[in-house]
Design a protein around this nucleic acid. Structure first.
Ligand SMILES: [Zn+2]
Ligand SMILES: [Zn+2]
Ligand SMILES: [Zn+2]
Ligand SMILES: [Zn+2]
Lengths: 166, 166
DNA sequence: TCAATTAAGTATAATCATTTTCAAATTATA
DNA sequence: TATAATTTGAAAATGATTATACTTAATTGA
């Protein structure tokens, strides 16, 4: 954690920005909730718990700054709010997302699935890829398992009835 | 065009919705600007030219309805507005986009690039893919060509100077 | 050190896209 | 035709984000 903060501090300094206490508090919240996909409001409320004097505008500005420096990625899942996702250290590409249309969960795929696809795009469309956004919408493994379980139970019921019919 | 409208009409009727004059006008604008990526406001202004009495709220409602029926896809390129994209007839998947970070243009890729990737996602992450959003950010072929042209001209200049130096 | 400059922060107001409300108009149903 | 249900348009409300005005903290350089 501290190492990570220090490296982010260096990234800021490299662009003549300071890691002020408010910015540090914001970064800490992002680090502590790395697997989540927090909106600016979410971040604000979490930062407030530790640094109650911070303003919402500062959080927005900090997130915008971190976005510009590619420390966080801004992403929108179609619910009207931007969400901020810490870029994994050493990651050359923005990770992918699995959005469940049943339970609303958002899972991540860190593995790069687009290497070949990007080669095709560069060759065939003459487009120099710098970044990407890939989101799948569908049914997550938890919901799929739930369905299987329900099917199993239903079949059992069917089975109980069968003998009566025969 | 008329055939396309009729098929959309049937899709609406199948779900007990009517193709009112306002809805038809909206669909026509989408058809006439199929290669664009119009915002609700854009659609509103274009519809107004032909049906000046229409209200913005009606356009929003119509676009929302068409979204639900999968006749249009709603997409967000990160500029704070939703854009509405007619789904191509017979297309099983939402097409992909190339957003140029230099000139802002948005090009489309109709070809399905994710077939293999989706198989991997289903197998490895146990996620049942229903839809996807794939956008590449980078430099479009027009801007790349412009750069090449500039480089060529610069080299020519260099070449002109060379003799003086020698 | 200390005044001057600059960067960053806060609170509030403004903006802008989108949604909601509600009365009027249209269309379907009995 | 009367009645109910759907759809619309105008205006108001909402909610996320950005801009403004002022304050505070940090930096600079005599
Ligand atoms: Zn789920
Ligand atoms: Zn993520
Ligand atoms: Zn371009
Ligand atoms: Zn498109």
């Amino acid at each position: 954690m501290e190492g990570r903060i220090n490296r982010i501090k260096k990234q800021l300094h490299a662009q003549k920005y300071k890691l002020t206490p408010q910015r540090e508090a914001t970064v800490r919240v992002l680090l502590e909730n790395e697997q989540d996909h927090l909106s600016a409001e979410d971040v604000y409320l979490l930062v407030k718990e530790k640094a109650p004097e911070i303003g919402l505008a500062t959080v927005y500005r900090t997130l915008e700054l971190l976005s510009e420096l590619k420390i966080v990625d801004k992403i929108n899942f179609g619910d009207g709010v931007s969400r901020y996702d810490l870029r994994r250290e050493g990651a050359s590409h923005f990770h992918h997302h699995l959005v469940c249309i049943e339970c609303g969960s958002v899972d991540e795929i860190q593995e790069d699935l687009l290497g070949e696809v990007e080669k095709v795009v560069e060759r065939k469309w003459h487009f120099k890829v710098k970044d990407h956004r890939l989101t799948f919408h569908g049914i997550c493994h938890r919901c799929l398992e739930k369905h299987e379980e329900e099917n199993r139970l239903n079949k059992e019921k069917e089975f109980e009835k069968e003998p009566e019919k025969v």
